[in-house]
């Protein structure tokens, strides 16, 4: 090895493997290099769901329809929760579609490390690819389900004239984006916290269920008294759901202030999530 000593001291290394790394580094350049892998994961998520089924992707549509029917009966007919004059089917279908996206993405990304330990233990790729792929495949599924919602929506708007949508619809892509980032951030925080101590795992499904009732999904925020509404607004999801319903159904509250709050909240947890994810991904395989 003596002859190698004098050779090449230009420090142009492509990869540096150390115990520590830039904590705020999302390494988007590397993610971009692995974009084909990202698209493969998204494709896998979508097509493996309906392999060996007769109805195939139609199942993506049946799911929200069934839930909506159940909610119409339970919350609308039995519990008689107000929908502020919006046709119940439309009210539930819209918010369930959006809510399912959030909760499913959160659930899936929160299992990133534990569910993929075998792959992560054998090969390197930017770990963030996996939760990102869940966000994107969920988004594709959401778009399919939204088209169903839009069919009902068009029917009630053009035929029944029962709703009053408005120009705030242009904010919809932004709302979805914030929702996606928020579920990703929560997900990567949870998965990072559960590699070593699994205790949190037991609480997640329960917490998500609880969160749904703390968000105006199956009820409009107007059913709460003004003093209690402030507590609901503190939930960063509230402004998004209310804005969505206001834009499409003409019922709800479109609050720039609380939307701004949600955006800031999302940025903060995203930064926190990236930091903790970066720290954990280096060595989680030793403790998972």
């Amino acid at each position: 090895m003596t002859d190698t000593e004098k050779i090449n001291h230009t420090d142009t290394w492509d990869i540096n493997i150390t115990g520590t790394r830039g904590k705020f580094d999302l390494n988007l350049q590397e993610v971009w290099r692995y974009r084909d892998l990202l698209s493969m994961f998204v494709k896998k998520d979508i097509i493996t769901v309906y392999k060996q089924t007769i109805l195939g992707p139609i199942w993506f549509l049946i799911q929200p329809i069934m839930t909506t029917l159940i909610y119409v009966v339970i919350f609308g007919q039995v519990a008689k929760i107000s929908t502020d004059g919006v046709p119940p089917i439309l009210f539930y279908l819209g918010s369930i579609t959006i809510w399912n996206y959030f909760s499913e993405t959160l659930t899936l990304t929160s299992k990133t490390f534990t569910e993929n330990a075998t792959i992560f233990g054998k090969v390197y790729f930017p770990r963030i690819i996996l939760p990102l792929s869940k966000v994107l495949s969920g988004m594709l599924k959401l778009l399919i389900q939204l088209s169903l919602f839009l069919v009902f929506w068009a029917y009630y708007y053009f035929v029944k004239h029962g709703i009053t949508p408005n120009w705030h619809i242009v904010y919809f892509p932004l709302l979805l984006f914030v929702l996606a980032i928020m579920s990703l951030s929560f997900g990567i925080i949870i998965t990072s916290l559960t590699t070593k101590y699994r205790d949190l795992n037991f609480l997640i499904s329960f917490a998500i269920q609880l969160l749904m009732y703390a968000t105006p999904v199956i009820y409009p925020i107007s059913i709460a008294s003004p003093q209690k509404q402030i507590w609901l607004w503190l939930n960063p999801l509230t402004s998004i759901f209310e804005a969505f319903k206001f834009a499409f159904l003409g019922q709800g509250v479109f609050s720039y202030f609380w939307l701004g709050y949600s955006v800031v909240f999302t940025i903060v947890i995203l930064v926190f999530g990236v930091v903790i994810f970066n720290v954990v991904e280096k060595r989680f395989i030793d403790t998972v």
């Binding site: 420090d11 142009t12 290394w13 492509d14 990869i15 540096n16 493997i17 150390t18 115990g19 992560f120 233990g121 054998k122 090969v123 390197y124 280096k282 060595r283 395989i285 030793d286």
Partner: peptide
């Protein structure tokens, strides 16, 4: 797959 406790590996 995992990273060292201390030290550094450089790869080109």
């Amino acid at each position: 797959v995992t990273s060292p406790t201390s030290g550094e590996i450089k790869i080109k």
